[in-house]
């Protein structure tokens, strides 16, 4: 007699915990063929608010951690992902070969970004030879709390937008791909077991059009990544709302994650701090 499987309940990931939506809502997630996979939590604006609070709370500790430590933790995420390679491949709903390639690319991308943690400052910082007796140094610093609308590619795309945000010390609130949110929540399980402090990454599943505007208008969010927004009107509205507190905005992008990522996704969420000090005896 075959055993009945124990199904997983897919919940949100906020502040390192896995709550259901405070709204009590969920929505069905189906495979590309239309088969029912699971009921995902449908996050509300209040969940988004809670996620921003959790990210804000996590920001000082995460941005204050050493770059070496952040790199270790990102590498640890890659290790944990490697251990669940097969599970993610199953969940992606692609052909087996394509799925494994995609998982492998996501793991490799995490390793690539992990290494940037203690190098980006050297690449983006400058020693400035000012015309006077001053020591003058510019260094990059994380922008703060970044709201990210993840692209449709459920794992590689997600990793490709989250890793560059957090590796430099930002905390984020991610709206997972609306139709394929399950790998995001499984990734949350990976994050929760990788020594990543709670609140550094918060993942919401639900309707992009419902959640993104609240995040775009939230006055305690410092930057907005609209990569996954496909509706031009929604993107425009979010970008306009983001102007209210001068959020840094990265616009919608395509969903091809195969190329060299470059520095752009990191530098979009970096500030430059310049410190002056006199030189004298």
């Amino acid at each position: 007699m075959s055993r009945l499987a124990v199904r997983k309940t897919y919940k949100l990931f906020i502040g390192g915990a896995f709550p259901r939506s405070e709204s009590g809502r969920s929505y069905p997630v189906t495979s590309p063929k239309g088969d029912f996979l699971a009921n995902a939590s449908r996050a509300s604006r209040k969940d988004a608010r809670d996620a921003v609070s959790a990210a804000r709370k996590a920001f000082p500790g995460w941005s204050g951690a050493t770059a070496y430590n952040r790199g270790q933790i990102l590498y640890r995420i890659a290790e944990m992902l490697e251990g669940r390679r097969a599970q993610f491949a199953d969940e992606l709903g692609l052909g087996k070969k394509a799925a494994l390639e995609s998982v492998d690319a996501a793991i490799d991308r995490l390793v690539w970004y992990a290494g940037w943690s203690d190098k980006i400052t050297s690449v983006r910082g400058t020693a400035n030879p000012v015309a006077g007796p001053y020591f003058n140094l510019s260094t990059p610093e994380p922008t703060g709390v970044v709201a990210v609308v993840a692209p449709a590619d459920p794992l590689l795309g997600l990793v490709s937008v989250v890793a560059p945000v957090i590796v430099t010390g930002n905390a984020c609130v991610v709206v997972a791909a609306e139709r394929t949110p399950l790998p995001a929540i499984t990734l949350a399980e990976v994050l929760a077991t990788s020594d990543l402090p709670g609140g550094v990454v918060n993942i919401l599943t639900g309707h992009q059009a419902e959640l993104a505007p609240w995040l775009a208008a939230h006055m305690d969010v410092n930057a907005l990544d609209l990569t996954g927004v496909t509706d031009a009107d929604l993107a425009l509205r979010c970008e306009q709302d983001a102007a209210e507190n001068l959020k840094r905005v990265l616009g919608p992008a395509g969903d091809d994650w195969s190329g060299d990522p470059g520095l752009g996704r990191m530098t979009a969420f970096l500030e430059t701090k310049t410190v002056w000090h006199p030189m004298g005896v």
Binding site: G132, P133, Y134, P278, M279, G280, V281
Partner: peptide, 13 residues
């Protein structure tokens, strides 16, 4: 004497 406020050379100059 060492408790007197310091003097920043660049500022004084």
């Amino acid at each position: 004497l060492h408790g007197l406020p310091g003097v920043d050379r660049v500022g004084a100059d």
